[in-house]
């Protein structure tokens, strides 16, 4: 664990920042620490956190997934359409939609890993194509309300604890096991650090890359399904903000956009920070515009702290990093 902390200083910083933010918020709006408020904060953060899980895996692997918004929208709309407000069809609808999200991810991953299409372009194209297809398919008409079961999963509680927080916790444990305790995790970090070295070390690079996009497609679909339970209905555009928030959560959680390091544990903090900020600003009487400014500033701040320039300043005491950069280059 010690190595985990020393290697992931940025994650520690993200949690420290989150705690400071909690204190500030509690100071400005004393009601913030009430059980009901904490609960609703957790519920909101869960959606960001769950959708950002896949984004974290993709970014660690050196890619990015811009198709999240419409995978999320599609899953939400199709779920309500196919279930028509009934619980029973969920038995097959949910697995089907998760598989569908996975399939989109598979196509994204194949385009990136097999055809060499840049991730930004591949997932952007997937996003707009999916957007059009789902609009054609549904005709843009409103859809039935979410089934009660989904509502329970999104906003229900089991002995006071939101169900979705439990789902999120389970997914976090799963993500931690995958990243820190499995061969796949090692392969993923290797691919994100240097795909050629990974390939020369016998890592199944293509499969690993594709898997990250599959995971991202599945978590986006799951997020869409759960989000309908929160809003009660599915509407097109409900996923639009998730592109920004997932990337922001990953960035605030300390993962470099170029891949190779970072951890979902950091993204969890990122999701919480973003959600708490959303709650803090009304308390300060600030507009939604101010919220965007603060979001941008926080991202800028975290990437600056994580930048090479800063870490070199940090490391100059121990003189280690510099040796990596230059020492071996000029023997």
């Amino acid at each position: 664990m010690n190595t985990f902390l020393s290697r992931n200083r940025l994650i520690v910083l993200a949690y420290i920042g989150m705690l400071l933010l909690v204190l500030i918020t509690a100071f400005f709006s004393p009601g913030f620490l009430s059980a009901s408020n904490l609960r609703s904060t957790f519920i909101l953060a869960s959606f960001v956190g769950i959708v950002a899980l896949g984004q974290t895996f993709v970014i660690i692997g050196g890619g990015i997934d811009l198709s999240i918004p419409w995978v999320l929208n599609s899953a939400a709309v199709l779920m309500t359409l196919l279930c028509a407000g009934q619980d029973l069809p969920l038995i097959w609808v949910v697995p089907l939609l998760l598989a569908g999200g996975g399939l989109i991810g598979l196509l994204n991953g194949a385009g990136v890993a097999l055809l060499g299409v840049p991730p930004i372009i591949m997932t952007l194209a997937a996003n707009v194509i999916l957007q059009g297809l789902i609009l054609v398919f549904t005709g843009g008409t409103p859809t039935p309300a979410a089934p009660d079961m989904i509502k329970f999963l999104s906003v229900g509680r089991i002995s006071g604890i939101p169900v979705i927080a439990l789902i999120w916790t389970a997914l976090t444990v799963l993500a931690w096991l995958l990243l820190s305790k499995s061969a796949f995790g090692r392969h993923l970090y290797a691919v994100g650090t240097n795909v050629t070295v990974a390939r020369y070390s016998g890592v199944p690079t293509t499969r690993t890359t594709i898997l990250t996009y599959v995971i991202s497609g599945m978590t986006a679909a799951l997020g869409g399904i759960l989000l309908t339970g929160y809003s009660g209905v599915a509407y097109l555009g409900m996923g639009d903000s998730y592109l920004f928030t997932t990337v922001a959560a990953v960035a605030i959680g300390g993962a470099p956009i170029l891949g190779g390091s970072g951890h979902y544990i950091g993204t969890v903090a990122g999701a919480l920070v973003l959600t708490i900020l959303t709650g803090l600003l009304p308390a300060l009487n600030l507009s939604s515009g101010a919220l965007l400014v603060v979001y941008g500033a926080v991202i800028l701040l975290t990437v600056s702290i994580g930048s090479e320039t800063f870490s070199e300043m940090w490391a100059s005491a121990s003189n280690r990093r510099k040796r990596i950069k230059e020492g071996t280059e000029n023997g």
Partner: peptide, 22 residues
């Protein structure tokens, strides 16, 4: 060595066990 052989930013342990991590 740097472009094909080693993950320069990862530990000796992670590098050594990468091919056989399974």
């Amino acid at each position: 060595r740097r472009g094909q052989g080693l993950l320069l930013t990862k530990s000796v342990r992670e590098n050594l066990s990468l091919p056989v991590i399974r």
